[in-house]
Amino acid sequence: MTVEIARHDLPTGADAERLAEGLDEDLAEEIIHLEKTAALIDSAFGSARLTLHARCVIDPRAAGVETWESTVKALQIGSALFAVTAIQEGAVECRINRKVRSIPAIGPLSTADAGTWLTAFWLAVICRDQERMTQLSEITLDRLRSPEGSYDEYIYHWVDTLQSWWLRRPGLADKLIATIEASDPAIARVAPQDLLQAVLYPPINLFYHYVRNDRDGFTSTLADALKLHKTYWTLNEDRATDIDGSIALGPLAIACLAYDAEFPLDIESGYLPKHLLERTWIGEFPT
């Protein structure tokens, strides 16, 4: 039996359409500007993520190609961010918005950190872009460390776990256990507790069930993750109207892995856009 977890109400209609179209236009300008300087590439990545969420507000099933394009552009800019911050001279060839662009290198950037890495990696998983998953997984943890106190230590264990899983490095089980232990609310102190428990931890729990091939446990855990996402994004009026809550990006990415492994995912939800989950648009155009 299919379980339906309804998305909370978000503003739709003509105003939401205009917002998405306006964000698309602004992002297109930012992408063009990146060919002159990548100094604001982190801002462009933020704009791309916002555009993706805006598209998902009006297209919760990701049935339109515009939603797929916004997903791909977010992936492309997120990956480019790490490429241009890896070197200090020259330029990097990056495909962004259906065109290969030469983006000037800028060297280390404080926002090219573990949190940004996770978002970029989720997007690569959702787009089934294995090459970018590999490129991101080869980035050293030292490069992703922020100034002391910016993140709880668990996030570095989590990145290490995902990189080790994808690159088939040894010690995956121990690294995942370390991630789970370090994300305990009694240990993690930087992230707000409600954010940690409702948004940040569920992808870890889902991944645990995925790597153990626990198909029955995965489905119920996914349902719990989406319910927690909904609870977090409806706690108050400000959150309930924030389009960042339109999709559950981390759970969606892990669900994509499970879908590709033929797990029985009998769940429907606006937080889990059907056509992103089921890779409907893969191959529509080069990513």
Results as ranks from 00 to 15, higher is better:
Thr2Lys: 15
Asp9Lys: 15
Arg18Gly: 00
Glu21His: 03
Leu23Ala: 09
Asp26Cys: 10
Leu27Phe: 09
Ala28Pro: 05
Ala28Asn: 04
Ala28Arg: 11
Ala28His: 03
Ile31Thr: 00
Lys36Glu: 12
Ala39Leu: 12
Ser43Arg: 12
Ser43His: 11
Ala44Glu: 04
Phe45Trp: 06
Ser47Ile: 03
Ser47Gln: 13
Ala48His: 02
Arg49Thr: 08
Leu50Tyr: 06
Thr51Glu: 02
Thr51Pro: 02
Ile58Asp: 02
Ala62Phe: 10
Ala63Val: 06
Glu66Arg: 10
Thr67Asp: 02
Lys73His: 05
Lys73Phe: 03
Ala74His: 02
Ala74Phe: 10
Gln76Cys: 05
Gln76Ala: 10
Gly78Glu: 00
Gly78Val: 00
Ser79Met: 09
Ser79Ala: 14
Ser79Arg: 12
Ala80Tyr: 02
Ala80Trp: 00
Phe82Met: 02
Phe82Thr: 01
Thr85Trp: 00
Gln88Val: 09
Glu89Asp: 13
Ala91Asn: 10
Arg95Lys: 11
Arg95Val: 04
Ile96Met: 06
Asn97Val: 04
Ser102Val: 09
Ile106Asn: 00
Asp113Met: 04
Ala114Gly: 06
Ala114Asn: 04
Gly115Leu: 08
Trp117Met: 02
Leu118Trp: 07
Leu118Ala: 05
Thr119Pro: 01
Thr119Ser: 10
Ala124Val: 01
Cys127Met: 01
Cys127His: 03
Arg132Phe: 04
Met133Gln: 15
Met133Lys: 10
Thr134Pro: 03
Leu136Pro: 05
Glu138Pro: 06
Asp142Leu: 14
Arg143Asp: 11
Ser146Thr: 11
Pro147Phe: 05
Ser150Lys: 12
Tyr151Lys: 11
Glu153Pro: 01
Tyr154Cys: 01
Tyr156Ser: 06
Thr161Arg: 07
Ser164Gln: 08
Arg168Gly: 08
Arg169Tyr: 02
Gly171Leu: 06
Leu172Ala: 04
Asp174Thr: 05
Leu176Glu: 08
Leu176Gln: 07
Leu176Cys: 06
Thr179Cys: 04
Ala182Gln: 05
Ser183Arg: 02
Pro185Arg: 05
Val190Trp: 00
Ala191Val: 09
Ala191Phe: 05
Asp194Ser: 08
Val199Glu: 04
Pro202Gly: 07
Ile204Leu: 03
Ile204Glu: 01
Asn205Ala: 14
Arg212Ser: 13
Ser220Glu: 11
Ala223Thr: 14
Leu226Met: 05
Leu228Lys: 15
His229Asp: 11
Lys230Gln: 10
Lys230Asn: 11
Tyr232His: 13
Thr234Pro: 13
Thr234Met: 08
Glu237Ile: 08
Glu237Met: 11
Arg239Asp: 01
Thr241Val: 14
Thr241Phe: 05
Asp244Ser: 14
Leu249Val: 08
Ala253Ile: 12
Ala253Ser: 15
Ile254Glu: 08
Ile254Thr: 12
Ala255Met: 07
Ala255Arg: 05
Asp260Phe: 09
Asp260Ser: 14
Ala261Phe: 09
Asp266Ala: 15
Glu268Ile: 14
Ser269Ala: 13
Leu272Lys: 14
Leu272Glu: 15
Leu277Ala: 13
Arg279Thr: 10
Trp281Gly: 11
Ile282Asp: 15
Gly283Arg: 12
Pro286Ser: 13
